[in-house]
Amino acid sequence: MPQPMIDPFGREVSYLRVSVTDRCDFRCVYCMAEDMTFLPKREVLSLEELDRLCSAFIEKGVRKLRLTGGEPLVRKNIMSLIRSLSRHLDSGKLEELTITTNGSQLSRFAQELYDCGVRRINVSIDTLDTAKFKTITRWGDLGKVMDGLRAATAAGLKVKINMVALKGVNEHEIVQMMSWCHEQGYDLTLIETMPLGEINEDRTDQYLPLSTVRERIASEFTLTDIPYKTGGPARYVSVAETGGRVGFITPMTHNFCESCNRVRVTCTGMLYMCLGQDDSADLRAALRASESDELLNDAIDEAIGRKPKGHDFVIDRQTRQPAVTRHMSVTGG
């Protein structure tokens, strides 16, 4: 067995999130500007390079791999990468291969994802109101996403819905979303908006503390903290009345850095040891400098040795600029 990757604070890095593209067919208001300029093709890792990079991390002890974007399923020939990576599931080196998606392409790919060993997906939906969905995503079609969810369920994929809590936008729909998710057999994870990238919006107008949301839910439902984990930062509760689970991702009100086991790689091969810090390592240069993985492994080891203790997210009227300038779609959701 390989030696585990241990950061300076004794945390084992066993979870890798990889953005396979910065492109998306939505333009969600908290994630992207509407008029985005995307990366030129030469800067984006090829599918073969992404396979090699992910495989190197797996050899170094990564057990959970999540492919993200942008929207990962809009990447041309993405299923060839997923099919290739599934060999690590077959060998037992990888415990789980998962996808975060907006759901727009699930009708096309759900069955193939299952056939490639994917058993669980995260789907981002912030409202069940068709008009509001269009407003939040700018380009999205809720009906198409619902078709995709049905295809995912039919294929045997377990679905978790991710909902970004936005003040004055969807805050009064959260209980409705929870009830709907649990009726469908989906878990729900609520996420605080994060100060990433210029978005043409004032995030102080969007930010809704999940501590407030939890209090509102608890006034109507019986919530019990449970130790359930999926490998990510969500803290889960069970809801007695619905029999379902709700997770809370709270980078602002209660950060989860003390147990962070994750690193992220962008579609350009930049390794970010922390979502909320700008420190990074250029793995693309190491990939392209040699056909062997020696330089790549050295670059990974050096970077893990710089993983910080935590992030410094702030959203307030005085701190109007994003904590980091890169968009969430670049780093990977």
Rank of each mutant, 00 (worst) to 15 (best):
M252F: 15
P308Y: 10
T266A: 05
R23A: 13
V20L: 02
D282C: 04
V62W: 02
M252T: 15
S280K: 14
E112S: 13
L296A: 03
L196G: 08
D51Y: 00
R264E: 01
T325V: 03
E49N: 01
C116G: 03
R17Y: 00
L89Y: 04
M1H: 11
S19Q: 14
D316V: 11
R11G: 03
R66I: 03
V13W: 01
A154D: 12
Q318G: 06
I161T: 15
I125A: 08
L296E: 00
T212A: 11
C260P: 04
G140N: 09
I161C: 13
L50T: 01
A155W: 05
A154Y: 10
G243D: 10
H311T: 15
I304N: 05
H311I: 05
A323G: 13
K76G: 04
L296K: 00
T268D: 03
L157C: 10
R317W: 14
T253S: 15
A323M: 12
E171F: 07
K309H: 08
A285F: 03
S46D: 00
E49W: 00
L295P: 04
C260V: 06
I304S: 07
C116Q: 12
V44W: 02
R262E: 05
M1V: 07
L45Y: 00
R83Y: 04
G247N: 12
